[in-house]
Amino acid sequence: MDKRHSLVSNSALEHTIDKILNQTEKNILSNIQSALSESQKTLDNAIPKLEQEYDKVISDGKKEADKIEKQIVGSSDLEARNKQLLALEEAIDKVFTKAIDQISNMAHSGDYSNLIKTLLDESTKILGTTKVIIYTNSKDKNVVQSLLSKYPGAEISSETIDCLGGITVKSKEGAMKFDNTLDARIQRLKPLIRKEIATKFGVGN
């Protein structure tokens, strides 16, 4: 009796174990299935995000490349332009030096007397009086002296000044002075002369 009972209970146990095993297998399979579909879903969701991220990396990289390109092009353009400006200025300076040499070596005769007269007229007109003291360099002293009679009250100073030519006029009470030397006139017109020279070199209009 005991033996029979033992056989029956063994088969029931086996049946229960089988049932549990089946159930567990089903559960595991279903879990695997849902995990698979879950991971598939996550993967599907990740693709657009990844694509977005990829696009962002590409566009950021492009922006950075554009920035670097701008920096390189900008600074090399400027460097080239600045070198050109310095070279042009050097050439202009050479032209100025040569022109000033020629002016200082030219003969102070003939038409030069008319130039001094024009400068004297202009200076006395600007100061509003002919009662002035005139300063000039040693080369022009005689030219000025010869014109002095045309300006009543004007005197020539015994002091000479260091200049290319022309005159400096001072009112007798000493309050007003007008510099009409060739040096001063060249200095005043320098920006225009520079432009003229640059144009001859094919720079500017």
């Binding site: 202009e122 510099d179 009409n180 006139r185 920006p191 225009l192």
Partner: peptide, 12 residues
């Protein structure tokens, strides 16, 4: 711009 300059005054 002209070559004409200006008068210099020394009475400050």
């Amino acid at each position: 711009m002209t070559a004409k300059g200006g008068v210099q005054y020394s009475k400050i």
